[in-house]
Design a protein around this nucleic acid. Structure first.
Lengths: 347, 347
DNA sequence: ATCCCGTGTGGGAACGATGTCACAGCCACC
DNA sequence: GGTGGCTGTGACATCGTTCCCACACGGGAT
């Protein structure tokens, strides 16, 4: 019995290298490199010949080798909290488009709101020698770590290292103030706030905006109406049920992100309350469902796609000018008035 | 006048290499490599010393150099059509989780349904020497191209190269048949179908399922009720408006994906038709809004997150066994009956 | 004739990590 | 006191690319 073996190892031809192209075109490796990259001299007929040989062989330069030599890659790292949340998905989509237009490839990781996954991913990005990183941070750790490795970072949506790293955020405070003021203007005095972590800049700013609008309307803050809930529809729904079933329920709710809004909305539906008859609802961060449900839900809309795209632009500028002062870009938000807000019920 | 220059180039210290670790630990580069990778001998006290030195220096091995030497990378390419569509976002989220668990990093590109962007991205992935690629293909070009470069490919959601490459899809035909049969069972005879490209396997299979269910119910197909619309809410909404305003309108609509369903739903709302009183609606591909609108929308649900995760598992297996026969995995779907389907109005 | 350009090409050393190979100790056993 | 088998270490070539340098050629100026 004999064991037959393939002629070529793995039965598949080796990927062509620059050396193969050089031999096919009858020139040296250096000349091929010059002809393909356009850096340095190459006679036009030689260049021609090299290009033809490269195309025939299906040669694709090895980014690994190039990066190793040049010590700069054309990849960006993007770390987002949760791709299943349309907010982050759209952010990533915007980043993807802008990255492609600027000739970067995008290494993406979903950090699932876990600090561990986040630092694991950060280390992978250092190992990959990415040119820069965009992150929706959960703590200041990522920015610090990456910066210590000389990798430019842009924080998006929320900031933990403002001052030392660039940021791209939206007008959280003014947006929250506008939303709350809208409710105040309609005559509401008992306005609940559903908010995520208030130690995040987004949460903090939105909370401040809420407070400012209440203060402007001469309304005293009722701590019982401020609920700090996590990033979880089920949880916020439960918290909303508790509040709405309780005595002295609010006449309006401001939900500070789309997930919380979904939870509140489901709670309201479940209780059979009428919107906006019994209770008004307004959200920060517009999501598709808000314009589909009945009644449609008023929201402070942020241009999330643009948020991602802007972050990539900022990062690209930073990569080109590493020593410039750090910048925080604030994008405008706008109130979309729909059907879920109206004056409170008369008592 | 003198021009002052920084002492160290760029004013920032070089990233530590394995050589720095070796010097700090007082051993050779080889020993450091062995100690860190665990391949080959290393006395425990030496290993200890090396680990400490590496940690102190904040050493992170250079993936570029490692990949160049080993000729295998630990990155996967993921090409999806549109991250703004929750279907693809969830798919990517599933892929991301599974990739991370298996120690892969994920290079993601949003191909925006453009063939050009798709092949551009494919070339970038070849250049990156990724270990494998997951793609929701727009044509057979990507799979062919990548395969010709010896890169394993898994087609997800739809297939263009079944037989020569692996695929992970859902039970499109059976799902569509179930949905349509559900309507037939309720007594509907005029059932419209909104479908995307029928030259994609998803579209084709769902169309076949629809036909099968009609045939089983002894219903003749009315070509006027089959609308092939693109991936665009606005377009499908317009097409739905035309159909629903016309004479002889259907008593039920089966929308073959979440985008088409959104268009149809918006058209129905716009016309003020009652669901399911005037018209029943059922969708393929459950989306969050379907359980939030009133009435809630019945749908054939696919486990999209799992689709992405399964594709990564398949790809990983393929990477380990490149010569095995190609496999197509079919995931089950299930009908979620909600409020949007009921018997047709009596005439 | 010598020098110096500009143009064009090839040789060879990096980049950082891996892994083969050689070899140095050390012990045990004939 | 060889031999053989371990454990443990270092030298060195290698992966594919870039880019600095050397050099060759022809032509014009010195």
């Amino acid at each position: 019995m004999t064991i037959e073996r393939r002629g070529t190892p793995l039965g598949r031809s080796r990927r062509p290298t620059i050396k193969d192209v050089a031999e096919a075109a009858g020139v040296s490796r250096s000349t091929v490199s010059r002809a393909l990259t356009g850096r340095g001299y190459a006679a036009s007929d030689v260049r021609e010949r090299v290009l033809r040989a490269a195309a025939e062989l299906g040669y694709v330069p090895d980014v690994m080798a190039r990066t190793l030599k040049q010590q700069v890659s054309r990849s960006l790292g993007v770390l987002v909290s949760d791709l299943r949340n349309p907010f982050y998905a759209e952010l990533a989509a915007g980043a993807s488009r802008e990255a492609r237009e600027r000739g970067y490839t995008m290494v993406l990781a979903d950090t699932s709101l876990s600090a561990e996954a986040e630092s694991e991913a950060a280390e992978a990005l250092v190992a990959l020698r990415v040119a820069g990183v965009i992150v929706t941070p959960n703590s200041s750790a990522v920015s610090t770590y990456l910066s210590s490795h000389g990798i430019p970072v842009v924080e998006v949506d929320r900031q933990f290292a403002a001052g030392s790293t660039d940021g791209v955020v939206v007008g959280n405070r003014v947006g929250a103030r506008t939303a709350t003021a809208h409710l105040v203007g309609l005559g509401h005095r008992r306005i609940a706030l559903f908010i995520d972590e208030t130690d995040w800049t987004t949460g903090y700013e939105r909370y401040q905006g809420y407070l400012e609008a209440l203060a402007a309307g001469d309304i005293k803050v009722d701590p019982a109406l401020v609920v700090s809930s996590g990033w979880d529809v089920t949880d916020s729904r439960r918290r909303a049920l508790d509040m709405l079933r309780g005595p002295d329920r609010p006449t309006a709710v401001f939900a500070a992100n789309n997930v919380l809004a979904e939870g509140v909305w489901r709670a309201i539906s479940g209780l059979g309350l009428s919107v906006p008859g019994d209770i008004s609802l307004i959200a920060f961060d517009d999501a598709p469902w808000m314009s589909m449900v009945s009644p449609t839900v008023s929201a402070v809309s942020q241009d999330t796609f643009n948020l991602g795209a802007t972050a990539v632009r900022r990062l690209d500028e930073r990569i080109q000018m590493p020593e410039a002062d750090s910048v925080t870009t604030v994008l405008n938000v706008r109130l979309i008035q729909r059907e879920s807000t109206a004056p409170p019920p008369v008592i």
